[in-house]
Design a protein around this nucleic acid. Structure first.
Lengths: 192, 192, 192, 192
DNA sequence: AATGAATGAGCGTTCATTCAT
DNA sequence: GATGAATGAACGCTCATTCAT
């Protein structure tokens, strides 16, 4: 019973992942997930109380792990020269790459397909963390203007990483991330 | 013409703007717009033939003005040193800023909330224009890698402008845009 | 005022005729009639209280005249040999042809396009009159079976006339009606 | 499969039959069918994907069986004297009578109430088959006038059969059909 | 009297969720 | 626990009719 349940749960989560990927949270159809997982719709609701709860189950782990990874790489980075933003950027990139291998699909769902759900602000959460790191890493003082700039830099950099993620793989991706970090953070002191 | 016809139209457009802002094109409800504008649903359809037509009325002007402005500033820029990307960036930024005051909300709807409508690719359209300008302005050769980088730079820069749009005004915004252009394009040759 | 009103009334009736012809009673649109007659919809309702009333005004005269014509030709026929069904048939055909010139369009509307209106049974009314004539003209006794046969003969003959009406004109129509009467009523005694 | 699934389907089809009979395809209301069958509207759509599909389910069998029967009796007839129209007529009539008991109501819907649906031309289809048989069976040459006459004869004869269908049963019907064939085709050569 | 804007019930259809078996 | 049938609010949209000017 335990086993069986677990297997059914897995099937549902897989089908849900595919459906959320394809259609996003709002457009995703519970019926399609039921059909896709070969679980009767009524039973599906025994495993997950609602579409929101199912979405939650699909992305929760990723949504918690990712900020943790980022935080860790930040901490790691702090043991080095805190003004070496490019170093930070690469740390982050590596961290994110690590996550990608584990939570890649969930991550992109959280970023692109969570509209209408409780996770609609997920991207903003990540971006804010980066923003903070950049604010204290790059700028001498956290004025309002500096914070705004840090925000847009975080946004742009993160968006770039995501693009590479979506559209490239392997060595090409690694190189592009490297070039992106260089573009954003080489000689940053003289550009802020 | 008699009655408050024009006023009703205005009320509908306002309610629609708010509803599209809140829920995006796809999830927006014609009934909610009707209630929000205090216009019976049947009458709403006297003014706008369909949801698509109403969305069109809300965003059309903005959707046409903005690419025009960008093209114009690009042409203007070409009369200067074409390698001065920062100059181009500022031209574009200023142009866009001009529009912002007129089409700010509509623009953001076009960017963020047009999924499911005929304008779904609006943001990509703009971004691709920038991408092309950057590709030929910054990079010696349009390799695939360079194109990817140009794409993310365009994306990041545009996203930044939009953020300033959303959240700042007047002199503050002008300064931030200036700083953003500096951040992105100062000494760009040595960072690509 | 009288004059103007009358002219407006006429315009409405014309547009209504065209619309009922095109779309039938049920599908006909009051708005289209208003537009077609260049009478504001509100004003249209000052002339005709409802779609039903307007339909009534369009077809009433024809709906009353036609049975009258048929009755008259029947009476006329009774002054001759009552067993000469073919004679009756031609009388009727001539009568109907007369009406056609005056009420042709209205007649066809009554026949084909009155579904959903109070005139839905118009065709049946005409057919029943013919049925009765045939019943007493052809059959020795009005048994139930004879009545049924008279009914189908009336139906078939009438349907035929209408087809010729709809699809032919002038001499061709006259000949076909003649041939139809011959087909139906030559040597009828030996076929019943 | 469990519950009363089949029974529900039946209930829907019954209510639909009644509603299509009463109002015709175009004016029939899915909500009324839902209420009439005591099936919530949403559930109704589990059984039939659309109004068109429901109509299809109601009439499809009849719409396919009837032309098949007519063709069969025509083929059978061809083994006899092809100029014996009355024989053909009776063949057809008998064939149709057989179907009548099975598809009577559906057939009449196809004939009278299918406007707006994919079956709108059903009656014309049948009539044209008869028309062709009559044209080549009765008339020496297929001139335009002969074709028109054949058309009205087919129309009248078919209409008559339908009337008997609607209103009689068993032996009475058989006799009437016999008399109808006699009326239409006895001594036909001298009447055309 | 004339105008056309306003009104809202109704249409076919969808879909997350609940309920009976 | 499993099944899928049942439920009904909501969707975009239409249209005869009424109402305010």
């Amino acid at each position: 019973m335990q086993y069986q349940k677990e297997e059914v749960r897995e099937r549902i989560l897989e089908a849900a992942l595919a459906e959320f990927e394809r259609s996003g949270y709002y457009r995703a159809s519970m019926r399609k997930i039921a059909v896709g997982s070969k679980v009767p719709i009524g039973n599906l609701y025994r495993y997950f109380a609602s579409k929101e709860a199912l979405f939650d189950a699909v992305v929760k782990e990723a949504s918690e792990a990712i900020p943790r990874f980022i935080a860790k790489s930040y901490e790691h980075f702090l043991t080095f020269d805190v003004s070496d933003l490019r170093r930070l950027a690469e740390e982050i990139s590596v961290a994110i790459s690590d996550i990608a291998d584990r939570y890649g699909r969930e991550f992109l769902i959280l970023i692109d397909k969570s509209e209408g759900s409780a996770y609609a602000q997920f991207y903003n959460g990540i971006r804010m963390r980066l923003e903070e790191m950049f604010l204290f890493g790059i700028f001498p003082r956290p004025t309002k203007g500096n914070r705004m700039l840090a925000k847009t830099i975080a946004d742009g950099f993160l968006t770039g990483l995501l693009t590479f993620w979506r559209e490239t793989r392997g060595e090409e991706r690694r190189q592009l991330i490297h070039r992106l970090a260089k573009f954003y953070f080489n000689g940053v002191e003289s550009r802020i």
